[in-house]
């Protein structure tokens, strides 16, 4: 019989209680059990960064964590980044403006990673931004639009 646990976690401000098989990754739990498919599972071994979510505000790979380990914690996914009124966050807005995405597969990981990074490093320059997203692989854009978007968002957020 499968080893399961009943877990309760807060996702994008909303409390969820569900049964998780203990071997299920946090990413699969978010997608299949909670139904939030914005988090993308790519390589599933921590390399591509597409599945990055915020755990208690810090960017982590949701493929490298078990759902049961998130019990009692707070998770933010791509679905939770927009403002409460549904308008896009400055970073999301900048991705739109600067062609920061094409196919969109890496985008949830890029946005969650950069949301945490720019919060902690509001003065980040291009080199620091490129290093911050070195663990997020994009095969469409060549990164230029993503870096431009991050730089522009940092500026917008500082101007407040």
């Amino acid at each position: 019989m499968a080893d399961t646990r009943d877990i309760t976690l807060t996702v994008n401000g909303e409390s969820h209680t569900a049964t998780a098989e203990t071997r299920t990754s946090l990413g699969d739990f978010l997608r299949h059990t909670i139904g939030l498919t914005g988090t993308h599972m790519g390589c599933e071994h921590g390399v591509c960064g597409a599945c990055t979510v915020l755990l208690d505000g810090e960017a982590v790979r949701s493929c490298l964590m078990l759902a049961v380990q998130a019990n009692g914690h707070e998770v933010t996914t791509i679905e939770g980044l927009a403002n409460a009124d549904g308008t896009l966050s400055p970073l999301q807005e900048a991705f739109w403006e600067h062609h920061g995405l094409q196919c969109g597969f890496c985008t949830p990981g890029m946005l969650t990673s950069l949301t945490a990074f720019l919060r902690d490093h509001p003065d980040a320059d291009e080199k620091e931004i490129r290093e911050a997203i070195s663990g997020n692989i994009c095969r469409c854009t060549g990164y230029q639009g993503i870096v431009n978007a991050a730089l522009d968002a940092a500026k917008t957020m500082q101007e407040g």
């Binding site: 960064g49 990055t52 755990l55 960017a59 982590v60 790979r61 490298l64 990673s113 070195s134 663990g135």
Partner: peptide, 9 residues
């Protein structure tokens, strides 16, 4: 060591 996302765990 890895990336900031992996260093968080």
């Amino acid at each position: 060591v890895g990336h900031f996302q992996t260093r968080n765990r």
